[in-house]
Every structure is written in C-alpha cells, then in structure tokens.
Design a protein around this nucleic acid. Structure first.
Lengths: 351, 351
DNA sequence: TGTGTGATCGTAAACGTTTACGGCTCTCTT
DNA sequence: AAGAGAGCCGTAAACGTTTACGATCACACA
C-alpha cells in the first residue's frame, strides 16, 4: 500500500494526497476528508524510509544504553521512568524514541559511530558518561544533536543533564557531621564512570569543610554496583581496625547489600552504623529500617532531556529556543531511620 | 558524504562502488581495495534510508517493551540478558536490535500498528503477552515476522518462546507436598498477563494430583508484581484464619516483599513459612535465608529468540530452516534454605 | 580471422516520499 | 472587461541506494 495506490484509488494526484496527509494548507477541506478516510480504511501509513530519504530526517531519536554497565548501576526502573518522560514530550511532535542497546562485547564508541553514520536517528541520548568519553568528541565533530545523561570532561560545550551527585554526597556528610559523626565511610563505584569522581568530590569537599582529615581507607571502590558489590564493600569497611560510624553509598542498590552485611555481622543499620543511600527508588523505599536517601523525579528529568534534544534539532529549534542545556538536577533529602547519631554519643548521653 | 561523491572521488561509477562495498563478485580485487580504503578514509557509510527504500528492508528488528508492566514484573536485568543473547546472534548477520518502549499511556496494539505500518523494522519481538493479545492477531494478519516472548491464546500458529511457568509451579508444589506441606498458598500476578494463568494452572494441576482440595482463599492476586505487591499479598495470606504453611510466588521480586512481611510478623521465612520464589535472579540470590528458586539462562533464551526470528525473515530463512518455533524453556530447581518441612511436622518429630 | 567467453564496469531504473513550481478556475476589484 | 489574487491541484524532480542489463575488452580457441 503505497501513496501511489492510494492516489489512484481516489483519482487524485499523489502530490495532493501527500499534502492532505501532512496537513498542508493548500488542499480543499473536503478533499482532505476523503483522503484521510481512505487512508484509514485501506490502512495506509507512509513508508518511513521514503520520507526519511526525501527529507533527510528519520523522526526517531535514539537512547543508547549499555547492557553491562548501567543496569547493574541503576537497577532499571530508573531508565523506564526517564523514557516515559522523554516520550511524553516527543509524542507532541510525532517523534519516536528508540532504545539502542550496545552489545556487551562492543566498544561503545564504535557502536555510536555505526548508529550515527548510517543516519538511523536524528539525535542521540547517551548515558553512563565516562570521565573522558570518546563518544562525546565524536558526536561533536560530526555535529549530531545529542544530549548526555551525565557530565564528562570530554568535548567542548555540549548539552548534558546530570543528577546532583556532588550535592548529595556533600549534604549527606554535613548531615552526618551535624549529628556527631566524624568517621564517615564512602562506598563508591569502581568504574571510571564520571559520577564516581563527582560523588567523591562532594564527599571530600564536605569533609574538608567540616575540618575532618581525609582518610583514604574509608573510601571503598566497590567491585560492582549491585547488592553483592555493596555487601563486599561494607565487608571491607567493617574489617578496618578503626571502623567508621557512618557510611554513604553512591547507589541505593548497594545499600541493600550493606544492610545484609551489617546484619550478618550482628550490627543493625540505623543503630550500630548510620547509612545514607542514594536515590529513593522503589527498592530503597522497601528497606527496613527506612533508608535516608534523596528524591528526584526521573520523569521530569526525562522531559527536560527531551526539551534539550529538541532545542538542538533544526526542525524544532525555534519551538525550544535557548542556549545549550547544562543542568544539575537537585535531589531532595528524605530522612529515614538509618542515620541517627553515633551509638557512642547516644550511650554517652544516656550514661 | 554520499555514494555519488565517493564514486566521483574515485573516478568510478556508483554502481561499481556499491558492488564493491557490498562484497559482490563481479568487481576487480584491486578496485574493491581502493573503494574500501577511500570509504574508510572519507568516513563513508551508506545511508540507511536509501538502502531500506531500495531493498524494502531495514536491517533492524524491534523488541517491544512496556515501560509500566514488565519492569515492575521482572526487574530489569531480565531483559538486558535477553538483549545480549539476541544480539550475539544478530551480530553475525549485520542485523541491529532496537528496543521500542511503548509509552505508558499508549495502547500497546496501537503502538505496534504504528511501528509496523511505518516499516521501521523488519521484524518484531513482543513480550508480556496477554491471554488474549490483539497484537498477535494484527501481526499475523499483516504477515510481519514476529516472535512472542510468552504464550497466548490469540492467533493461529505463530512463533513463541516462554519460560516454563506451569512446570515451575507444579514442581514447587510437588516438592512442598513431598516435604509434608498441605496448605500451600499461591501469590500470583494480578494482571491479565498470560503467564499468570499458566502459573495457576500448574499449581492447580499439581495440587489435584496430590489429592489436595483447591482452596480459593489460598490464591492471591497481588496488586503489583513488586516488593510492595509481595508484601501486601503475604499480608492477606497471613490474615487467614487458617494460614498456609508454605507459599510460592510467580516472581522473585515479590519474594523480597514476602520475606519482609514475614519478618514484620515475627515469622522467619524458611522456618515458620516455606517460600519458593521464581527465578534465580541477582536479587533473589541475595536473599537470606537463601531462596529456593529456579534457574534459566536468559542469554541462551535470547539466542533462541533470535534464531526463531531469523527463521521467519525471507533473507535468512534458508540459513535457519525449520518450522515455527514454539518452545517452553525448562527451568532447573536450585534448592535453598527457604522451603523446609512445616514447623508442625518438625515439632512433631522433635516432640 | 572470426567467435565465443569471462571478467569488469557503466547506465539507468526503481524504491516511496515530499515539495517547488506552474497552471487552472473563480471571485473580486478597478 | 481586464487584471489581480486566492484557492486548489497536477507534474516532476530529488533524496541515496541497489541491481538488472548491456557494453567493453582481453583472451583463447577453432
């Protein structure tokens, strides 16, 4: 069912049919009606390759994910919420979002190159940005509209949106210090993903501001950002001669493992050890004692990602004007039962 | 950078360039060399829209997911493993897998219609199949190559692959019965997703075979397939006048909630209540006491999904011959600490 | 020398759209 | 009544490929 057949069936030229379907002004209302009706009846829908070829645009934007790295980091309701947000904006413009999973044994940059050079999508979201990320350099050079979910040192000025990892770490430390903690552990990711550096920066800065000397043995780089990773990292923290009284984690999935390790050591999170996780995800919400963590609307962040993308695309630039988007999304602390003052202090008071 | 420019740069016709790049036989070895070298240097890659238009094929296969339903059901490392498996096969044929997330407020069937009629992909995987699934009827009618991840009553003979929900339920019941349980609860999904029916069938069949009368109050349809859903469903089970001594769950994420509910009631899973979960996922592996559940290689299942798809695609049918694939993937029990005999029996023995 | 054959390449059509351009018919204005 | 303008529509080119077909050339063979 091509536009030609549809036109023949209606005894109209294909030009008029195309104009009618695309909502152009110079076509009779009655004619348009007939065309739309016939298209619906015959189940006609324009061939995407044809229109892409003609207008040099695919009406699709890709979202690259890595099957190995991120899910283990974020769990995944994370991305689903982001997708929903992006699509809620795209839907208004008949733009489609497609997810591009980079195979686990592929180089991410090669994958981007392949996708981009074949002109499969009009724009690309990338996530899990590395501290130095080749993908960004490449996309800038090729002048492809792209928005990064996560900061990076690479490239010149480009659009990105990131969670406030530094702010979360700093605020966590300040809160713990205010409650009397001095020995604060940090469980970070072991990847060279950029957010790990940012998170550590926030920790260091806040510790320095509190006048607490930096103790490298308190900073653990976990093997994996998963329950097991959190378990193992907590294990290393507990093995220290002088243990921390509090710990903060770059990821709430790891907090699940941390809780378990504490239990297995006969310690109770939120009494024998203060714990502050990261995001208030469904998994985190389910911990007991309730986890002190930070809230953010991923749906809204997805919407903002979409707007940032549209601002870079020639066809929509006028609708979404403004400079390159570089935003750090604040996260709001949700207090839980997991981060009381240190036990020594409580005992001291009590005694 | 089009093929025309590349050809001009080489002083060759575009036909020859195309043949050289596509590995056709009737082109001089030396010429091919020159073409490939120039293409690499100038960074030429064929425009996907152009080739799709010409040969009526996009070299991309879609995998439809629903952002609301499935992740809450499966957690997500589930799909990532499947993607990896699919891609490991597709990579050999220069086929791309793209994930198509159906927006949460869209009708899944409308979404399929849109994707298919625009000829965005050559084939489609669908998942989370409903008991009666319009998508299947539509795809059959349009003669689109598709493979369903999950059975359904809809449509005629079509390709599908499914986990052995019935077998898992039946084997769980048999194991519990063999250990002396008679009052066995079932926590099922509340969606009309097909696997819920299949799981319940296995439960009913095995109970009947054991000669245990069916008690509808022991079968709970959870509000959501999540930690919280499992918590709430367990709550309803515990509220019964005569409680079950064992329970099985259609989903291991719900087992996390079940454990918590039991704890909160002062009961210990694996002592006061036998629990059998579903899949041995990373989350399940992390429970304590260790959960009795079932193992399956999602990567291998993904590979099989890919093979089933290739068998339906005209360009690959000869490489992957055979009839329509309809496979139930067996799952292998991994015993844990969570399903001992009922306490009464143990006490009885002890006493 | 003519002829058949295989290797290599160029030509041009075709895929399904969109859109610039021009033409036709009416109506309105001067 | 002539011209201008608006409304509507048809024509055809163009997007970047692939591929059927035919042309050219060299070479071997009768």
């Amino acid at each position: 069912m091509s536009i030609r057949e549809l036109a023949r069936h209606l005894n109209i030229s294909i030009g008029t049919v195309s104009r009618a379907l695309n909502g152009r002004a110079d076509v009779n209302a009655e004619t348009r009606e007939r065309v739309l009706k016939a298209a619906a009846e015959l189940g006609y829908a324009p061939n995407q390759s044809g229109r892409s070829l003609r207008q040099g645009t695919t009406n699709a934007v890709g979202f690259m994910i890595e099957t190995n790295r991120e899910t283990s980091l974020h769990g995944d309701t994370f991305f689903m919420s982001v997708y929903d947000g992006v699509q809620s904006v795209f839907a208004q413009h008949h733009l489609d979002l497609i997810i591009l999973p980079c195979p686990f044994d592929d180089d991410p940059c090669d994958y981007v190159r392949r996708v981009v050079s074949r002109r499969f999508v009009d724009g690309l979201f990338i996530s899990a940005t590395q501290r130095h990320d080749e993908r960004i350099d490449y996309l800038i050079e090729r002048e492809i509209p792209f928005v990064a979910l996560g900061r990076s040192l690479s490239g010149g000025p480009h659009s990105w949106i990131d969670l406030d990892f530094e702010g979360v770490a700093a605020e966590s430390v300040r809160r713990l210090v205010a409650r009397g903690h001095r020995r604060i552990g940090l469980i970070n990711t072991g990847n060279d993903i950029n957010l790990g550096y940012v998170f550590a920066d926030g920790y260091r800065r806040a510790m320095a501001e509190a006048g607490i000397p930096y103790r490298p043995e308190f900073v653990i780089r976990a093997d994996q950002t998963s329950e097991e990773g959190g378990y193992g990292a907590t294990d290393r923290l507990l093995a220290l001669a002088e243990r921390p009284t509090a710990m903060l984690l770059v990821n709430e999935i790891m907090a699940i493992g941390a809780y378990r390790r504490l239990h297995d050591a006969g310690l109770m999170p939120g009494r024998d050890m203060a714990v502050i996780g990261f995001r208030r995800s469904p998994q985190a919400r389910f911990l007991s004692p309730t986890l002190t963590c930070f809230e953010v609307s991923l749906f809204d962040m997805g919407r903002r990602l979409a707007e940032a993308m549209l601002g870079l695309m020639p066809a929509y630039r006028d609708l979404y004007p403004g400079p390159v988007v570089q935003e750090i999304w604040p996260m709001h602390l949700v207090g839980g039962e997991s981060d009381p003052p240190p036990l020594s202090l409580v005992m001291g008071k009590a005694g």
